[in-house]
Protein backbone atom coordinates (compact mmCIF):
# COMPACT_ATOMS: atom_id res chain seq x y z
CA UNK A 1 0.00 0.00 0.00
CA UNK A 2 1.26 3.46 -0.84
CA UNK A 3 1.69 5.54 2.30
CA UNK A 4 2.56 9.11 3.12
CA UNK A 5 6.27 8.32 3.36
CA UNK A 6 6.33 7.10 -0.26
CA UNK A 7 5.09 10.48 -1.45
CA UNK A 8 7.46 12.34 0.85
CA UNK A 9 10.40 10.33 -0.46
CA UNK A 10 9.48 11.10 -4.08
CA UNK A 11 9.04 14.75 -3.16
CA UNK A 12 12.44 14.80 -1.45
CA UNK A 13 14.06 13.19 -4.50
CA UNK A 14 12.57 15.76 -6.87
CA UNK A 15 13.46 18.58 -4.49
CA UNK A 16 17.09 17.46 -4.33
CA UNK A 17 17.18 17.23 -8.14
CA UNK A 18 16.03 20.85 -8.25
CA UNK A 19 18.55 21.87 -5.62
CA UNK A 20 21.40 20.23 -7.53
CA UNK A 21 20.18 22.09 -10.61
CA UNK A 22 20.23 25.42 -8.78
CA UNK A 23 23.75 24.73 -7.55
CA UNK A 24 25.31 23.57 -10.80
CA UNK A 25 23.57 25.63 -13.47
CA UNK A 26 25.29 28.73 -14.81
CA UNK A 27 22.55 29.85 -17.22
CA UNK A 28 19.82 32.01 -15.72
CA UNK A 29 17.00 30.42 -17.71
CA UNK A 30 18.06 26.97 -16.55
CA UNK A 31 18.14 28.26 -12.97
CA UNK A 32 14.50 29.25 -13.40
CA UNK A 33 13.67 25.74 -14.58
CA UNK A 34 15.38 24.29 -11.52
CA UNK A 35 13.33 26.53 -9.20
CA UNK A 36 10.15 25.35 -10.93
CA UNK A 37 11.21 21.76 -10.22
CA UNK A 38 11.67 22.60 -6.52
CA UNK A 39 8.28 24.32 -6.28
CA UNK A 40 6.58 21.31 -7.86
CA UNK A 41 8.26 18.94 -5.40
CA UNK A 42 6.90 20.98 -2.50
CA UNK A 43 3.42 20.89 -4.06
CA UNK A 44 3.50 17.08 -4.16
CA UNK A 45 4.37 16.99 -0.47
CA UNK A 46 1.55 19.41 0.37
CA UNK A 47 -1.05 17.43 -1.56
CA UNK A 48 0.09 14.11 -0.04
CA UNK A 49 -0.02 15.45 3.53
CA UNK A 50 -3.42 16.97 2.83
CA UNK A 51 -4.71 13.60 1.64
CA UNK A 52 -3.31 11.47 4.45
CA UNK A 53 -4.35 13.81 7.25
CA UNK A 54 -7.74 14.43 5.65
CA UNK A 55 -7.21 18.19 5.84
CA UNK A 56 -7.67 20.79 3.12
CA UNK A 57 -5.02 23.22 4.35
CA UNK A 58 -2.27 21.51 2.37
CA UNK A 59 -4.16 21.95 -0.87
CA UNK A 60 -4.76 25.62 -0.07
CA UNK A 61 -1.05 26.17 0.41
CA UNK A 62 -0.37 24.39 -2.86
CA UNK A 63 -2.74 26.82 -4.62
CA UNK A 64 -0.90 29.82 -3.20
CA UNK A 65 2.44 28.26 -4.16
CA UNK A 66 1.17 27.95 -7.73
CA UNK A 67 0.01 31.60 -7.73
CA UNK A 68 3.38 32.78 -6.42
CA UNK A 69 5.22 30.65 -9.01
CA UNK A 70 3.16 32.18 -11.81
CA UNK A 71 3.90 35.76 -10.75
CA UNK A 72 7.57 34.89 -10.16
CA UNK A 73 7.82 33.60 -13.72
CA UNK A 74 6.16 36.72 -15.15
CA UNK A 75 8.46 39.17 -13.37
CA UNK A 76 11.56 36.97 -13.72
CA UNK A 77 11.18 36.51 -17.45
CA UNK A 78 10.71 40.27 -17.86
CA UNK A 79 13.96 40.85 -16.00
CA UNK A 80 15.70 38.15 -18.07
CA UNK A 81 14.60 39.80 -21.32
CA UNK A 82 15.87 43.20 -20.16
CA UNK A 83 19.15 41.59 -19.06
CA UNK A 84 19.56 39.79 -22.37
CA UNK A 85 18.96 43.00 -24.30
CA UNK A 86 21.54 44.77 -22.18
CA UNK A 87 24.26 42.11 -21.89
CA UNK A 88 23.63 39.75 -24.80
CA UNK A 89 24.04 36.71 -22.59
CA UNK A 90 22.36 34.93 -19.71
CA UNK A 91 25.50 33.37 -18.30
CA UNK A 92 26.01 34.06 -14.61
CA UNK A 93 29.79 34.09 -14.92
CA UNK A 94 29.66 36.88 -17.50
CA UNK A 95 27.39 39.04 -15.36
CA UNK A 96 29.96 39.83 -12.70
CA UNK A 97 29.78 43.59 -13.14
CA UNK A 98 30.34 44.50 -9.50
CA UNK A 99 34.01 43.62 -9.28
CA UNK A 100 35.74 46.12 -7.05
Amino acid sequence: MIGLSHYLIVSALIFSIGLVGVLRRRNLLMLFFATEVMLNAVNIAFAAISHYYNDLTGQMFAFFVIAIAASEVAVGLGILIVLYKKQGSLDLDELTTMKG
Partner: peptide, 14 residues
Protein backbone atom coordinates in the same frame (compact mmCIF):
# COMPACT_ATOMS: atom_id res chain seq x y z
CA UNK B 1 -3.32 41.87 -6.20
CA UNK B 2 0.11 40.21 -6.40
CA UNK B 3 -0.74 38.64 -9.76
CA UNK B 4 -1.90 42.04 -11.05
CA UNK B 5 1.36 43.65 -9.92
CA UNK B 6 3.33 40.84 -11.54
CA UNK B 7 1.41 41.25 -14.79
CA UNK B 8 2.07 45.00 -14.95
CA UNK B 9 5.72 44.47 -14.03
CA UNK B 10 6.11 41.83 -16.74
CA UNK B 11 4.54 44.06 -19.38
CA UNK B 12 6.67 47.06 -18.44
CA UNK B 13 9.92 45.10 -18.19
CA UNK B 14 9.51 43.13 -21.40
Amino acid sequence: VMLLVAMIAGIILA
